[in-house]
Simulated scan of single mutants.
Amino acid sequence: MPYEVRAVITMKKDAPAEVQTVLVPDPGPGDVLVAVQACGVCHTDLHYREGAVSDDFPFLLGHEAAGTVEAVGPGVTDPQPGDSVVLAWRAPCGRCRACRRGRPWYCFDSSNAGRPMTLLDSTPLTPALGIGAFAEKTLVAAGQAVRVDPAARPEAAGLIGCGIMAGYGAVVHTGGVAYGDTVAVIGCGGVGDAAIAAASLAGARRVIAVDLDDAKLDAAIQFGATHCVNSRGTDPVAAVRELTDGYGADLVVDAVGRADTFEQGFAMRDLAGTFVQAGVPGPQARLELPLLDVFARGGAVKPSWYGDCLPSRDFPVLIDLYLSGKLDLGAFVTETIALDDVESAFDRMLQGKVLRSVVTL
């Protein structure tokens, strides 16, 4: 018997997000029904609303979520009803070529729920990143529901489902930060501040925050930035070099995802340094670099997919860091809002007024 729940959807390209009643089916084989407790408003949800991800409208938005398992489908042994979970948009299939080669963090066929959620007229909904969690309940594959310590506040815990994991993993997994490294992070939103926190926890000698907004730079200090560069009136490449004894940073993370920030990050590395692109670029972004510079500077230039994470391994670790006071997930939560406020939260996000708005249910 399907459940009627309130949820945030977008019907067509650039249409405002709106709350409608949708139908969530009982879990089928391998599926899990989750009562959503909190879901962060991520820029990726806005990309869906704008049609920048695909044209598979209508979309059920929301993906950065925590909740409680209400029911499980046939064959599911983990998680179980009553478990506290954070939802992941990577659930390794175990069958694709990446999984078979022992690299499940690159899984090319991530699992999703087998039954669709729909509008009342039975129109299938496309859930954002296979989750669709701006809803009172959602249906996901069992591998997407990662058990975590129930002591973690849902509005903080849910953020590791996307932005926090993306930034943290970009430094720890993709970037391979080492104790004593110098690290520069371009863009001090949720992903960037998570990268800053990860670098600080890993023992980086200097952690340099780069942004256009002094307020964001001030906030970056609480996550572990040792130096700040406002690139609005300063050449960020020259500034980072000056702060790293003239060499450039060992690791640079671009948490913005524009062509100009890519070029800046590429240039502010030390020789043989690593550049990681963690920010998701828009579909029209284009890049032009002299190939000789790519060769001559050496090192590595890497995109980071979801922080190259393995949710079943990494989510509990980040929750433990949070509960021990080493990673202040609560500091990422600027405001808590209702389902009806998601569209206005997109506006505040675009204006740079929030680190994260979080829907609580």
Rank of each mutant, 00 (worst) to 15 (best):
K302S: 12
V148W: 09
S200Q: 14
G158D: 01
V354K: 12
L289Q: 10
G203E: 08
G233F: 12
D293M: 08
P150S: 12
D254P: 10
G282C: 02
V185Y: 11
E288M: 14
G73C: 01
F315A: 07
G163K: 12
R232W: 03
P311F: 06
M268E: 02
V34Y: 01
L46V: 12
S344C: 05
V280Y: 13
A91V: 05
R258N: 05
M11S: 10
L119C: 06
K216W: 10
G190Q: 12
G273Q: 13
Y168E: 02
G175C: 11
H173F: 10
Q351I: 01
M1N: 00
V237F: 03
S231G: 01
M165F: 04
V191P: 11
V183A: 10
A220P: 09
R297H: 14
P25C: 01
T261H: 09
S200L: 05
R258C: 08
S54W: 02
T360I: 13
G352I: 12
V19F: 06
V359W: 06
A338F: 00
G189H: 12
G75K: 08
D218Y: 02
D235S: 11
P2Q: 01
T261R: 03
L271N: 07
T126M: 08
T336H: 05
A128P: 00
A219S: 09
A255Q: 11
H63I: 07
V237N: 08
E4T: 14
R286D: 13
